[in-house]
Design a binder for these strands. Structure first.
Length: 577
RNA sequence: CGGGGCGUAGCGCAGUCUGGUUAGCGCGCCUGCCUUGGGAGCAGGAGGCCGCAGGUUCGAAUCCUGCCGCCCCGACCA
């Protein structure tokens, strides 16, 4: 490709709208332009990087036995009603009516469509297993799109769906995808970690998120420093304390705490630490039994709503506001406690191990001290309900945990029969029995990978693309447009490299050297060949590695071989990682 | 949805508080000269619904009202 004829509108200054590195650099490098909030046009070079990622994804999905298809983006509401998701999915699902007033939506994901397809075609266990995937634009009307391609409303996603005859086979399919994902992200040159993720009501370790490690990540992962345990914070398990608290139970005591509503205020007033108090939080519940619930956690802990949601089998939770708490319990916020509550109460298992703690008395301006669960009140359930804290030990080995930021680029999920049961996607087994198919789904954020790669690979001068996903492998700078010798050499190199299958961008623009160097750095192309005055003087051209600045000078004849080797080395290093 | 900020040339911004000539500056763009290893220099030039609509006024980028768009934080703990 000739730079002079390529649409790569680079910017010297950063547009004011961009805050995070990948967004800034993709705008500056002329890779993307915004149309509207969370919706971007991919310009030729941005698209080239995306295509590189897609290619890797395709190769590995195909290698793992999946087959590509392409499903529609516009989907009928009725299909979504079959699974109840047309109502449940919420405002992220963009709904609209067509000219015949038929309700439709833009696909944020394709479980319904794929299940509809498969139920219509698959009758027998002989036709299974099946794994189908597509790479396609998704639309999710995010509450707050941000960070350029990191959280867009329209984005490119690879989504795969597996169908198996039984649980065991489904696990095999899952493992295949897990392995394929490891290969994909490795090949993309990313530093990543697979972590256990929330798997909703299904439970078990059948959901993993693949996280690219980067400071700008929107997700927090918990990683053990001693063993290989890694999990999403929402999922990170906290084991129940094994040692029983033997402190003697003291007599229940009611104390006046005028105006003390906050945990810190009550604790200061009573001269105790927050770890001696148990707070009572009221949640409104959607789905499950729909009844509000009170949750008990230690004063200095936080409720992990995802864990609570899973315990209750709820679709959604919302912390009740002051007024709602009063309407539900008859107690003003700040003085709420488990004793005498008529609604369901659940407790974090840490609370079960506490003795003689403080809770709200259930009436204004009073708290109770020396409260003990079991003696003074009962709860409906004791479970792991709180957010993991810095001092919590690893649930697997008891070692120290650390927290790091990550960008979720992939998520694999064992669905079970949620969709196949709701939509009657069934097959006949060997014994003639009709059974629902066991499903799995597997997503990769293709456009997000490019952003994540930039978050992880850049410097003050611009992007440093991993070779595998760079829009072009090599850029040749012709620094002597009016010099016949230099130009001829640059053109010859350009032709030679292309003949060898190398992707080359030839900077033949009538620009001064400085501008060409700056743009080459900004674009992040891994290898730069400079053809300039040194060719005349010393007979050499310069090759510079974008990543580490390593520079070699070679006679033009050696360039193709050198670059071919370097590209191969970069590829194999990634394979081994 | 709550809070904050912003909207003036392709990009980055000043001007708005305190209304008043022809709306500026830097970068980029066009023409010419010159220059050619890290975003050169000189000269000339093009480019604006001042987000939109309404209002106040002799007069509005500037004041008032409404709307739209964009960005950031939050949507969470009694």
């Amino acid at each position: 490709m000739r730079y002079s004829q390529t649409f790569v509108p680079t910017l010297k200054e950063t547009p004011a709208e961009a805050d995070v590195v990948s967004h800034r650099l993709m705008l500056r490098a002329g890779y993307i332009r915004k149309l509207t909030a969370g919706v971007y046009t991919y310009l030729p070079f941005g698209l080239a990087a995306i295509r590189k990622v897609e290619r890797i994804v395709r190769e590995e999905m195909n290698r793992a036995g999946a087959q590509e298809l392409l499903m529609p983006m516009v989907q009928p509401a009725d299909l979504w009603r079959e699974t109840g998701r047309y109502e449940k999915y919420g405002p992220e699902l963009l709904r609209f009516k067509d000219r015949h007033d038929r309700e439709s939506c833009l696909g944020p994901t394709h479980e319904e469509v794929i299940t509809d397809l498969v139920r219509g075609e698959v009758r027998s266990y002989r036709q299974l297993p099946l794994n189908l995937y597509q790479i396609q634009s998704k639309f999710r009307d995010e509450i707050r799109p941000r960070f350029g391609l990191m959280r867009g409303r329209e984005f490119i996603m690879k989504d795969a769906y597996s169908f198996d005859v039984d649980d065991e086979q489904a696990s095999v399919s899952y493992q295949k995808m897990y392995a394929a994902y490891q290969r994909i992200f490795t090949r993309c040159g990313l530093q990543f970690r697979a972590v256990e993720a929330d798997s909703g009501s299904i439970g078990g370790s059948f959901s993993h998120e693949f996280m690219v490690l980067a400071k700008t990540g929107e997700d927090t992962l918990v990683v053990c420093k001693s063993c290989d345990y890694a999990a999403n914070v929402e999922k990170a398990a906290i084991n129940a304390l094994s040692v029983e608290n033997q402190d003697p139970m003291l007599d229940l005591e009611k104390v006046e705490t005028p105006g003390k509503r906050k945990v810190t205020a009550v604790c200061d007033f009573l001269g105790i630490g927050a770890d001696k108090l148990v707070k009572t939080l009221v949640y409104k519940v959607t789905g499950g039994d729909g009844q509000p619930v009170a949750v008990l956690v230690r004063g200095d802990r936080e409720v992990q709503e995802v864990k609570l949601k899973n315990l209750l089998g709820a679709a959604d939770l919302e912390l009740a506001e002051d007024k709602e708490v009063f309407d539900i319990t008859g107690v003003p916020t700040g003085y709420l406690g488990p004793i005498g509550l008529t609604i369901k109460v659940v407790a974090d298992h840490e609370v079960a191990a506490m003795r003689n703690f403080v809770v709200g008395a259930g009436e204004k301006n009073y708290h109770l001290r020396h409260v003990n669960m079991g003696r003074d009140f009962e709860v409906a359930a004791i479970a792991d309900l709180r957010q993991i804290a810095d001092d919590d030990p690893c649930p697997h080995c008891g070692g120290k945990l650390g927290q790091i930021e990550g960008i979720e680029v992939g998520h694999i999920f064992k669905l079970g029969t949620v969709y196949s049961a709701a939509m009657r996607a069934v097959f006949q087994d060997q014994d003639g029995q009709e059974k629902p198919m066991i499903m799995g789904c597997y997503g990769i954020g293709v456009s997000r990978i490019v952003a994540a790669a930039i978050e992880q690979n850049h410097d003050e001068n611009g992007i440093i693309f991993p070779v595998a996903i760079a829009p072009s492998q090599v850029i040749i700078l012709n620094l002597g447009l009016k010099d016949a010798v230099i130009t001829e050499a640059a053109e010859l190199l350009y032709t030679q490299l292309q003949a060898q299958g190398v992707e080359v961008l030839l900077d033949d623009r009538d620009e001064r050297p400085g501008a060409k160097f700056k743009d080459a750095d900004l674009l992040g192309i891994p290898f730069r060949v400079t053809v300039g005055a040194r060719l005349g003087k010393e007979g050499v051209v310069e090759i510079r590695h974008r990543r580490d600045g390593l520079t070699v000078e070679l006679v033009p004849d050696q360039v193709a071989l050198y670059l071919l080797n370097q590209i191969a080395v970069a590829g194999s290093a990634v394979q081994e990682r």
